[in-house]
């Protein structure tokens, strides 16, 4: 997929996009089975990552029904939870990622209250 520059207009986003070329993003998405919410979330994350972080992200989708031990280790309470492992600092996002603005703020692509 090609990035469509016209859709993101903010100046700072351009800068972040420039930095992003050198940065590698590692995400883990914890879901609970193949519920509609889970599939919707996976689709949302994929879409946003392709759009903003094309070619430089890694996404693991983990079903914690299958691996409940991981839920404890990663402090998963709410599902779905997206954890940004890299770059540091570690970030946690919960919800179905339908709020794009909050998603971008959550993974530090956009500063808060902008």
């Amino acid at each position: 997929m090609k990035m469509k520059k016209g859709e993101t207009s903010a100046e700072e986003f351009e800068k972040a996009a420039a930095r992003r070329d050198r940065t590698r993003y590692v995400f883990r998405l914890y879901v609970t089975g193949m519920t509609p919410k889970s599939t919707r979330t996976i689709a949302n994350v994929r879409k946003l990552c392709e759009k903003h972080l094309e070619g430089c992200y890694e996404l693991d989708v983990i079903d914690i029904y299958q691996q409940p031990k991981l839920a404890k280790g990663e402090q998963i309470i709410a599902t779905p939870t997206l954890i940004k492992k890299l770059p540091l600092p570690l970030r946690k996002l919960i919800g179905d990622m339908s709020d794009t603005e909050r998603f971008l703020v959550g993974i530090d692509l956009k500063p808060k209250n902008s």
Binding site: P68, I77, A78, R91, G95, D96, M97, S98, F103
Partner: peptide, 17 residues
């Protein structure tokens, strides 16, 4: 402060744990 809420969620993680 460490958690960003980006939409609808549930607490299934807690149940599973």
């Amino acid at each position: 402060s460490e958690v960003e809420e980006t939409g609808e969620y549930d607490l299934e993680g807690l149940f599973i744990r």
